[in-house]
Write a protein that binds this DNA or RNA. Structure first.
Lengths: 149, 149
DNA sequence: CCTCCGAGTTAGCCACGGCTAACTTTGACG
DNA sequence: CGTCAAAGTTAGCCGTGGCTAACTCGGAGG
């Protein structure tokens, strides 16, 4: 009956799983940020251009180009040299989900008393690391306190 | 008076700054996770070994070795071939801060009704992306609802 | 005191996501 | 309708952080 040893092993495995999930989230972060911003630019200006993305992410156009090529390999965007950036259906879907999550995290932070600017900044980092269950808790809280902040 | 244009430019710059901060946080994440776990292992077992770190992070010993060499360059750990891993004073300090933040995020999530396992998993991802102000809001909330969850 | 196994290390590979510098293309305007 | 600046692209570099495969080292047992 090495149940102590077994539960210690289970704890260790659980911890490894948690770290693995964080690493996974990091992989999808860039993709989500890009499709989210591309969708927003298309909504507001009709088009999304490399330079606008670079300016808003605070990176160079070269970096945006690299990233867009990767996203195209993953079938999230469609790019042609010297043309506007377009989203694939999968990209649009991911953008919608990302935007919803982002908005929820931001309004939750405001609801617990964080000022709007900080809420926006922190939401950018937090949004990619929030599980469904925690999101549900955020949603419950925001609903209970619709005017907080 | 192109104040509309100016405030649009300010918004764009602010957004870039937010993304820049997230990228910065990613750079320190691994370091914080390592020193935090190393400190915990030393507390519990007296020593921290490469294999234990690898097992708990869910990566290979080779990866741990690479990372430890980088952390040594940054003066957070002291390593000698085939010996236990030690923390520098800076490493111990960082570990203490990381642990506090981790614990606060976890208890906050529990306080808003997230189950303890999910809270632990999500805290791992969230802790590196929470500003001082948001942390303060978490702290206020936990104090107001000490038994929630 | 020697052997040998397991822990640790090293070498070399890959993808991501930054950068600069040099180039090409586009399209606006004289 | 040609020019040329601005926008975009390409090439090549770097650090992080994963991996496998092959190695070396240390210490426990015979």
């Amino acid at each position: 009956m090495s149940s102590a040893r077994e539960s210690a092993a289970a704890e260790i495995a659980q911890r490894a799983e948690n770290f693995r999930r964080v690493r996974e989230a990091h992989q999808s972060e860039t993709a989500e940020d890009y499709v989210e911003l591309i969708a927003e630019l298309i909504d507001r200006h009709g088009v999304a251009r490399v330079g606008e993305l670079a300016e808003r992410f605070g990176v160079t156009s070269a970096t945006v180009n690299n990233t867009l090529r990767r996203l195209q390999r993953h079938e999230l965007v469609r790019i042609e040299p010297y043309r506007d950036v377009a989203l694939t259906p999968a990209g649009r879907q991911l953008a919608r989900e990302a935007r919803e999550r982002h908005e929820l995290v931001r309004s939750f932070l405001i609801a617990i008393g964080v000022d709007p600017e900080t809420a926006e900044a922190d939401a950018e980092g937090i949004e990619h690391h929030v599980s469904h269950r925690t999101l549900a808790a955020f949603r419950r809280f925001v609903k209970r306190q619709p005017g907080a902040g």
